[in-house]
Amino acid sequence: MALEKITNISGKAVYVPGDDIDTDRIIPARFMKCITFDGLGEFAFYDVRKNEDGSDKPHPLNDPRRSDASILLSGSNFGCGSSREHAPQALHKAGFRGIVAESYAEIFFGNSTTLGIPCFSASPEIIREIAAAIEADPDAVVELDVENTTIRCGDKTYPGELRESARGALLSGKWDPIAELLEGVDQVEETARKLGYVG
C-alpha cells in the first residue's frame, strides 16, 4: 500500500471567505444518506451555492472562471462541527487537492490529511493578498510547497504553516496511516493484554 509522496500541489484557486465554516455547511446532512462517498462532489457547499429551486446563488464556487480550481482559500476554524469525513471527501471529489485557511478544526484537519489533502495555515493578511491576486487574475496558479511549507502565487512566496506530523506523513507517502497501524499488531496485542482487554 505504497502511497504517492505529496510534495507539491498547484492549480487555480477559489476564495470562500468567512470564519467558522462548519462541516454541515460544506456538506449538508441530507446528502449523507449514502453508503459510499461517490457522488458527494456535486453537493459540496450545496445550500450556500443553490437556491431551493436548484438555481445558482451568487457564490465563488459558482463562478465559471473557477470551475477547475483545485485549491480552496478560507478563514479561521475551517471545518468545525461534525466529524463527518463526507466534508473533505466532498471537497476532494469536487476537485480540491489543497486548502489554505487561517486555522482548522482538528477533526477536519486529520480527516483531510488522511485523504492526502494538505491543509496549510496562513495569516489573514496573506490569505487576503492571495485572494486579491486570484481576483485580479483568475488563471493565476497557487502552489503549495509541502517541503518548505510555503505558498506561491504569481511571483510572490508566502510563509505557510503545516503541522509537522502532517507534513512528514505527506512527504513520506504515509498520509493514510492504515499500513503502519497494521504493522504494529504484535504490540497492539501486548498493550491490550496488559490492560486486560483480551478475552
Partner: peptide
Amino acid sequence: EAHTVRELSAGQTQLLIGAHLIHEVTSPQ
C-alpha cells in the same frame, strides 16, 4: 500512557481503543 502502543514515524501515537461505537452514517464506507 496506558493506551499508547507505539510512536509512528510521522510523530503521531498509535493509540489503543478500548471500545469502538458505530452508527449508520459514518460507518458504511
